[in-house]
Design a protein around this nucleic acid. Structure first.
Lengths: 352, 352
DNA sequence: CTGTTAGCGCTTTCAT
DNA sequence: ATGAAAGCGCTAACAG
């Protein structure tokens, strides 16, 4: 049973010891060679290298990170819906930056479920991720605060931390929304409807604030009957928009706080137009593919969502490089103060 | 230095031993309690539980999986471009299934770079992922074959394995493309252009085959001058389409092998129409959001891309449950034969 | 330059 | 019902 082929113990992948034995050295020396430690005789080095390739050896990163006391080399990404292009671009941006530090991104899709988000974060912490980048679904962020307390750096994207200190990357929600609504006002609109996400979503309320500010600047007030919050999918948004357009005194323009609502509103407007109804102006937050092809003038608040992810990842890696090892910073240095980055927006006009 | 507060050794997260000490038991007992081993006195159990919550203890999954000899509880997902909705939906489908088995998804975005893909797969293997779901960018799949040889189950999505045995989930590329082209033929088109991905991409050539089959069934031959392969982004596709439409004897219809090409072709057709040119019929593989809103009749080959991911994940988890532990199956049982699943397609018509 | 010892945090024996 | 010892695969820290 214990014959020469014991290198395939368990039929699994070869270990460092297998390599060492085959090369006739100690595990330590093999380890040194494979990590390019210079303190090894060239001849030995070659032997070890040969043994490693012959066996198809791959260092076990799990054992490695356990020994090194570091995290797992993973960054947890917590989002509500990866199918939304906004989140998938964010994910791409995050990943593109963290890979450069030898880290990988673990996706956590919560589907708007707060309990799922809580469990997810707990699990990521248990997995010893090096950090978490999150776009929390709701206003309750205690689970994220807990992660920070346990020494896992958290960076928030597109929402600010609530009740704890953390880095964050925001979009200029207020400014973008104000600019878009101002544009509608410039064009003579006085009754402008608002369609947005549930009030618990930070960006939604912030964009509503910007919308209101633009109205106020023009001496107009927000008419509550023209505000519909709570739609997260295009079909809900279409119904909400249709509701506004069916009012006795309907708005002449709509501003939507995100791409889901804009697309829904577009459908409602097009349907109305098809029935010979009035032309309704449309503006919205978030640029999206084919926005130029809808056959309707459209004003969109654009920003670089890849950059949002990249910036978040940069904040995270910066923090990781400041404080090596979980929890180190909480004791050694007083942990650098949280940083906040705001990604600018611009207005894009798409023609008929 | 070694005073009573040693439970915060390293200032990191508390360990099992910290919990055990606080509860006045051995690490072993603590471990048992936390894994719900019944063999523990209720009183002890309570004490341990209390200590754990007091300390905010979280089992270290890294140490756990090292000890258990299992993988890391991660599934690697290898795709070329997460920003493409096709891939992000796939990712979502994969994740939705694997989380149910307590696994998480690690994303690996290769950006079409073959070397990056090779490195990525090697890294995933080193991280001891429990399995890999991949949509390889090119025809060379030796790195995936190597992963399989090392005992890491691989499932291919949307391309079949080339030169090794693995589970895979395919779309009915041939049938879908044939049906779409047949539809164009039915409508009287005789000169139909083809726009597709680089020839190295399996789906592209398979869809071209389906296209050709439909032409052949109508007694038509593929005119090589009407075939443009190699476009991966909409703007490249738009140029390629414009090229076809500018021929002396231009096609009267275009069939595109994926959503990027369809969108590019749409732009070219719209531009031509805006200049008073002929109306060109358009068909394409992949459904996409707003396809109904382009103001052009459009025939699309639709399929459930979430389901593609879910099916791939199901194949993977099935295999993981068959063979617990890396490499086990290669010895114990002869490893169940690879399975192949084909996701059906349907034709969708979008009106003017 | 190379090897030995020890231990990361956890769990599987095998005692008690 | 509980504990002691050993070890998963790897690598710092010290020998030699």
């Amino acid at each position: 049973m214990l014959d020469g082929t014991e290198q395939y113990r368990k039929g699994g992948q070869p270990t460092l010891r297998d390599v060492a034995e085959r090369a006739g050295v100690s595990a330590m020396t093999a380890s040194r060679v494979l990590r390019d430690d210079p303190q090894v005789l060239p001849a030995t080095r070659e032997r070890v290298r040969a043994a490693a390739t012959a066996l198809g050896y791959r260092p076990n990163e799990v054992a490695r990170s356990l020994r090194l006391g570091r995290g797992s080399g993973l960054v947890g990404l917590v989002v509500t819906n990866l199918a939304n292009p906004f989140y998938s671009r964010l994910a791409l941006g995050v990943d593109s930056v963290v890979v450069k530090d030898g880290l990988k991104t673990v996706i956590g899709n919560t589907g708007q479920d707060l309990d799922a988000e809580r469990d997810l974060v707990a699990d990521l912490v248990a997995r010893r991720v090096d950090g978490i980048i999150a776009v929390p679904a709701g206003a309750d962020q205690r689970h994220l605060a807990a992660a920070v307390a346990e020494g896992v750096p958290v960076v928030l994207a597109s929402r600010p931390p609530e009740g704890f200190a953390a880095d964050c990357v925001l979009v200029d929600d207020f400014g973008g929304a104000r600019a878009a609504t101002a544009r509608l006002v410039e064009r003579g609109h006085r009754r402008i409807g608002f369609l947005g996400s549930p009030p618990a979503v930070y960006t939604g309320t912030e964009r509503l604030r910007g919308h209101a500010a633009a109205l106020a600047a023009a001496g107009l007030a927000v008419d509550d009957r023209l505000v519909r919050q709570g739609q997260t999918a295009p079909d809900e948004a279409a119904r909400a928009a249709a509701g506004l357009l069916a009012l006795r005194d309907p708005p002449t323009a709509l501003f939507c706080s995100n791409n889901r609502n804009t697309i829904g509103a577009f459908r409602a407007i097009r349907a109305l137009r098809a029935r010979g109804g009035a032309d309704i102006a449309l503006a919205g937050f978030d640029d999206f593919e084919l926005a130029d092809a809808l056959g309707l003038p459209l004003t969109l608040v654009a920003y670089d969502s890849d950059e949002l992810g990249r910036a978040a990842a940069r904040l995270l890696t910066a923090r990781l490089n400041t404080a090596t090892g979980p929890g180190t910073a909480t004791r050694r240095s007083p942990m650098p103060p949280p940083r906040q980055i705001v990604v600018p927006t611009s207005l894009v006009e798409y023609g008929e």
